[in-house]
C-alpha cells in the first residue's frame, strides 16, 4: 500500500473550543511532510489523535489501511513516534530503554539486539549504548529516541518538534538523517516544526492554522498559490501574521 496515513474530516474540540476543524490529508510512503503552524494551531492535538492518546468522535484516521479506532493494535504497530518532550527513562541505559521499547512491540530478544545495533550504528550511538540516558546531551537523547521509534520498523514516523532546544549541528544531523530515512526506507514522515530552515526542497508542506488546513502540497505549488517567493512569506500570509 502506497498511502501510509489518511485522515478524513477529522474534528476535535476542547469543550466548546474547536482545536481541529474538518481536517483531511494523506501521506504516502517515502514522503516527508512538514507540518507548520503557529502555537495553538492544533498540531499537538492532531498528533495526540493519530497516536490515540485522544479519541476522536468525528472523522477517520487510517494508518496503512487500518482504522486507528477499530484496528488500533495493527495501526499503532506501524507507527513510530518522537514526542516533543523526552520520553526516555533517565535512570536506565540506552540499551535498557531500547529493549523496553522492543518488548512493548513484542520483538524477540535476539531480533531486538540486532535491530538496536543497526539503528544505533546508523546514528553513531552504538558506542554509548551502556551509558545512562541522563549522561547524554540533548542531541544524543534525540538520536536515541529516533532509533527507538524505528526499532519496530514503522511505516509512518511522527516527529513533534524534535529539534527544539538543540544546537545547530545536532539539528542539522537529525534533519538530514530523517530525510535520508524517508528516501532509503520508503518511510512516511510527518514532522511538526516551527523552523523553516528544516524544510528540504522536495518536502511536502502542510500549513495548519486555527484547526484548519490552510495549504497542502509541494513547496512550488504553495508558493504559487499564495503568490509569494519564500516559504516564510507564504507561511506568514497563510496564517495572517500569527507568529510561528
Amino acid at each position: 500500500m502506497k498511502t501510509a496515513l489518511t485522515i478524513e474530516n477529522l474534528s476535535f474540540a476542547y469543550g466548546k473550543k474547536k482545536a481541529l476543524d474538518d481536517v483531511s490529508f494523506s501521506i504516502n510512503r517515502g514522503e516527508c511532510t512538514l507540518l507548520l503552524g503557529p502555537n495553538g494551531a492544533g498540531k499537538s492535538t492532531l498528533f495526540s489523535l493519530i497516536t490515540r492518546l485522544y479519541d476522536s468522535r468525528e472523522g477517520n484516521i487510517n494508518l496503512c489501511g487500518f482504522d486507528i479506532k477499530k484496528q488500533s493494535r495493527e495501526a499503532l504497530g506501524r507507527l513510530g513516534v518522537v514526542f516533543q518532550q523526552t520520553t526516555l527513562d533517565m535512570d536506565l541505559t540506552v540499551l535498557q530503554n531500547l529493549h523496553y521499547h522492543a518488548a512493548l512491540h513484542g520483538i524477540a530478544r535476539k531480533v531486538a539486539n540486532q535491530r538496536i545495533q543497526e539503528e544505533l550504528e546508523r546514528l553513531n550511538m552504538y558506542e554509548r549504548r551502556k551509558e545512562k540516558v541522563r549522561q547524554l546531551n540533548g542531541g544524543h537523547k534525540r538520536r536515541v529516541e529516533i532509533a527507538r521509534a524505528l526499532l519496530h520498523k514503522p511505516s509512518l514516523l511522527l516527529l513533534d518538534e524534535p529539534t527544539v532546544g538543540l544546537d545547530v549541528p545536532s539539528r542539522k544531523s537529525i534533519v538530514e538523517h530523517v530525510h535520508q530515512l524517508a528516501n532509503d526506507n520508503q518511510l512516511a514522515v510527518l514532522w511538526a516544526t516551527h523552523l523553516i530552515d528544516e524544510i528540504y526542497p522536495d518536502d511536502s508542506l502542510l500549513v495548519l492554522h486555527q484547526g484548519q488546513i490552510k495549504a497542502r502540497g509541494s513547496i512550488p505549488s504553495i508558493l504559487k498559490s499564495s503568490n509569494t517567493e519564500t516559504v516564510s512569506d507564504a507561511f506568514y500570509q497563510l496564517t495572517q501574521g500569527a507568529s510561528a
Partner: peptide, 14 residues
C-alpha cells in the same frame, strides 16, 4: 506529565 507514559500508551497493546 513528563511524557514517558506516552510511549507505553502508544504501543500496540490494549
Amino acid at each position: 506529565e513528563m511524557g514517558s507514559m506516552r510511549i507505553l500508551m502508544v504501543c500496540p497493546l490494549p
